[in-house]
Design a protein around this nucleic acid. Structure first.
Length: 466
RNA sequence: GGCGGCGUGGCCGAGUGGUUCAGGCAGGGGCCUGCAAAGCCCUUUACGGCGGUUCGAUUCCGCCCGCCGCCUCCA
């Protein structure tokens, strides 16, 4: 069974499931006010890999990830563009899913939208008011963090040691600067909903606690997101659950930053971010997945033209393997159990590698180690084939292919479907080489390369792909 | 100020108290090839500094230097 680092304890511990065989996980999704950037891509990939790996090992995963579609920044953008908030949210959500598809991220099993949960949030805010931990002001409803046992757990700091950052806005009438908004009183021209404590809209920290508990139930298994969400966002969600007397996430998982070539965190406020769209225009989405997998999920990753190109080269090595051994399709969906059966029956080679791979993944998702296992298989497959054991090579390669599939890394042989003109050129090159007319053969190769084909000569003649 | 992380060979990036090696990429040499491509083989004291513990530390402890993050919207 998998062990994962838990932010609440600061330790790697075994994942103890609420319901054996079934995993419930909630990952904070995007606020749809702008184009998704590399950081969004990273958390999506990290949790997609976690989800896929759990599924691959035979667990049933319920993966909920929300869309925040009501928020200050959406309102601000709508205002700037003289559009409605719902239009902004709809458009930005569309580019979110387009980017997710390009990255090969599986759709979560449920995607709750904040605006569809306002009723439930109103109920919860009412309960928090009834409990006495929340209070009303002229600007909304706030939760008093002093009323929360163990506030600061996820920051791993005591309440008293948390420095107060921003000054308290006198207009907010908060009792403590760290109190946070559960409900924001309606302002002219902003989206708002009716509530017993006044018309308004929900605060960000309320939607996730409501939706996660509503869909996954008390004591669900994993709550995840980027490291910067640990505090205060996740802490504030937890605070509400504590006040409500409901058991919340059993395990907190947070991923590290994307940093630029100077080692600085990529963020909107610093302006040093790259949109996913920019990256995907320049590079294969699979290369970004590989780049993310090459570092441990809690470490920062450097994304720069250099590291992306490096990942693309490594990906090319995997694709070349698929080409050499004719791997495709269905294999990549083989589960761990099936793979082990096939390894036992000899259909897949290198059974030891399966165990090795799982040991590494089970150790807090050591994806760099898992990739090393895969690349060792690639080499072993090539060595076997080079020494004449084509079949053994193919079995080893198939094992590597299955493991890539478990990480959502779609290894592809590339397209080698030829149009008639290309096929004719290939035939001509073969003929020219046969009669040792290398001048003509080279001319044909140049023509093919100019048309975007990669030319490889093998024992069975010229092969091209792109 | 509080809390936390990091510093590994040209680059990215794992890992470990001690004999042999993470892995990828790039460069160099070789094999194969008509030439390429792909593939394979080889590639020179790698572990921030100073102390300490130890038979032995890159790995443990202390100090120092440097970098980064959270404490405020942020994946």
């Amino acid at each position: 069974m998998l062990s994962l680092h838990d932010t609440a304890t600061g330790e790697v511990r075994r994942l103890e499931l609420r319901d054996p065989g079934r995993v419930s996980m909630y990952v904070c999704g995007p606020t749809v006010y702008d184009a998704p950037h590399l950081g969004h891509g990273r958390f999506s990939l990290v949790f997609d890999v976690l989800r896929r790996y759990l599924e691959w090992t035979g667990l049933e995963v319920r993966y909920v990830s929300n869309i925040t579609d009501v928020d200050d920044k959406i309102i601000a953008r709508a205002r700037d563009e003289a559009r409605s908030e719902s239009e902004v949210a709809r458009d930005q959500e569309a580019s979110w899913w387009a980017a997710m598809e390009a990255l090969g991220v599986k759709r979560p099993t449920e995607v709750p939208h904040a605006t569809a949960y306002v009723r439930r949030m109103v109920d919860v805010v009412g309960e928090l008011l009834d409990s006495g931990a929340a209070y009303r002001t002229s600007t909304g409803v706030y939760l008093s963090v002093d009323a929360v046992d163990g506030y600061g757990l996820l920051a791993r700091q005591s309440l008293g040691s948390l420095r107060v950052g921003a000054r308290v806005d006198p207009g907010e009438e908060k009792r403590s600067p760290r109190d946070f908004a559960l409900w924001k009183a309606a302002k002219e021209g902003e989206p708002s909903w009716e509530a017993p404590f006044g018309r308004g809209r929900p605060g960000w920290h309320t939607e996730c606690v409501v939706m996660s508990l509503d869909l996954l139930g008390d004591g669900f298994d994993i709550h995840g997101g980027g490291e910067d969400l640990a505090f205060p966002h996740h802490e504030n969600e937890r605070a509400q659950a504590v006040v409500l007397g409901r058991s919340f996430a059993r395990h907190w998982v947070h991923n590290g930053w994307v940093v630029d070539a100077t080692g600085e965190k990529m963020s909107k406020s610093l302006g040093n971010f790259t949109s996913l769209e920019d990256l995907l225009r320049r590079a294969d989405g699979r290369a970004y997945r590989l780049l993310v997998l090459r570092a441990h999920y809690r470490s920062p990753i450097e994304v720069s033209p250099l590291t992306v190109a490096d990942a693309e080269e490594a990906l090319g090595r995997l694709d070349a393997m698929a080409r050499r051994f004719g791997l495709a399709g269905g294999l990549s969906e083989m589960s761990a159990d099936e793979a082990e059966e096939k390894a036992a029956s000899g259909e897949l080679a290198e059974a030891g590698a399966l165990g090795d791979f799982r040991r590494k993944m089970d150790d807090d998702l050591d994806t760099p180690g898992a990739l090393a296992t895969i690349f060792e298989l690639v080499k072993a497959a090539n060595v076997a084939a080079d020494s004449g054991s084509q079949q053994l090579g193919a079995q080893i390669a198939a094992t590597a292919f299955v493991l890539c599939g478990s990480l959502g890394l779609a290894v592809e042989p590339g397209s080698s479907e030829l149009d008639a003109a290309t096929a004719a050129l290939v035939a001509e090159r073969d003929a020219a080489r046969k009669r040792r007319d290398f001048v003509r053969a080279d001319e044909v190769r140049d023509q093919l390369s100019a048309a975007g084909w990669v030319v490889e000569d093998g024992p069975s003649g010229t092969r091209v792909h792109r």
